[in-house]
């Protein structure tokens, strides 16, 4: 059994539900009174997909404009990105595209891109059609998901597919910042050593995964 450790960044305009999504997935709950993220929040979670354990270090970033200059430090060396928009606000779809462009410009390593249209519980106020979003996601080589953090719909899929994407990335071993460990000796990487600069100082990450309140572990079967 192998362990893959990956850095995931969640991006998108303010108020689209980035934190709600992550908290729903990691913490299994939803709050209507969540306050805007200031800076960024850090979560860890683990998934088992077939014979591989995937550890995700999730950076949930703030959507407000004033934090935009901080974003590079979170997407630098990221292996996957969840780019979220609100299906009831067309301008958040445009903002999502801006994020994709910024990632394409600044991240040279291959990464798993997932476009997420959140708030499907507000279907009646939808402004972005599924087709348009699907088409866009395909054009950038990413997956498209729709989700509702309120009703807990589609969010498991987002993370599961991200994990599967990361496993593929690891198999192609295209990505030097992705860390792969042999389970028998989790402290020593069996393959490529990542870039050690920046926030994602990976050698700390093993201890990080035991943050109690932000940990999920669930068995996963992949088809």
């Amino acid at each position: 059994m192998r362990t893959i450790e990956a850095k995931v960044v969640v991006l998108g305009a303010q108020g689209v539900g980035k934190t709600s999504m992550v908290v729903r997935y990691v913490g299994k709950m939803f709050s209507h009174h969540i306050s805007p993220t200031i800076g960024a929040s850090f979560f860890t979670c683990r998934l088992n997909v077939e014979d591989t354990r995937v550890k995700l270090q999730v950076w949930d970033t703030a959507g407000q404009e004033r934090f935009r200059s901080m974003a590079p430090m979170y997407y630098r060396n990221a292996n996957a990105a969840l780019i979220v928009f609100d299906i009831t606000q067309y301008e958040t779809f445009d903002a999502m595209k801006t994020w994709v462009k910024e990632l394409q410009r600044n991240v040279l390593e291959p990464m798993v891109l997932s476009v997420v249209g959140n708030k499907t519980d507000l279907e009646s106020r939808r402004q972005v059609t599924r087709e348009e979003a699907l088409q866009y996601a395909a054009s950038i080589g990413g997956n498209y998901f729709e989700s509702s953090a309120v009703n807990d719909e589609g969010i498991e899929d987002v993370f599961l597919n991200t994990a599967i994407g990361l496993i593929r990335l690891a198999q192609d071993s295209l990505c030097s910042s992705l860390r792969i460990y042999d389970l028998s000796d989790p402290m020593s990487p069996v393959s490529s050593v990542g870039n050690e600069s920046g926030v994602g100082q990976n050698h700390h990450s093993l201890q990080m995964t035991s943050v109690e309140h932000a940990e999920v572990e669930r068995p996963r079967l992949c088809c």
Binding site: V23, H33, I34, S35, I38, S41, M70, A214
Partner: peptide, 13 residues
Amino acid sequence: SSESFKASESWTP
């Protein structure tokens, strides 16, 4: 005034 600090660790300017 920031409930969100309770959910996780934050890195805040």
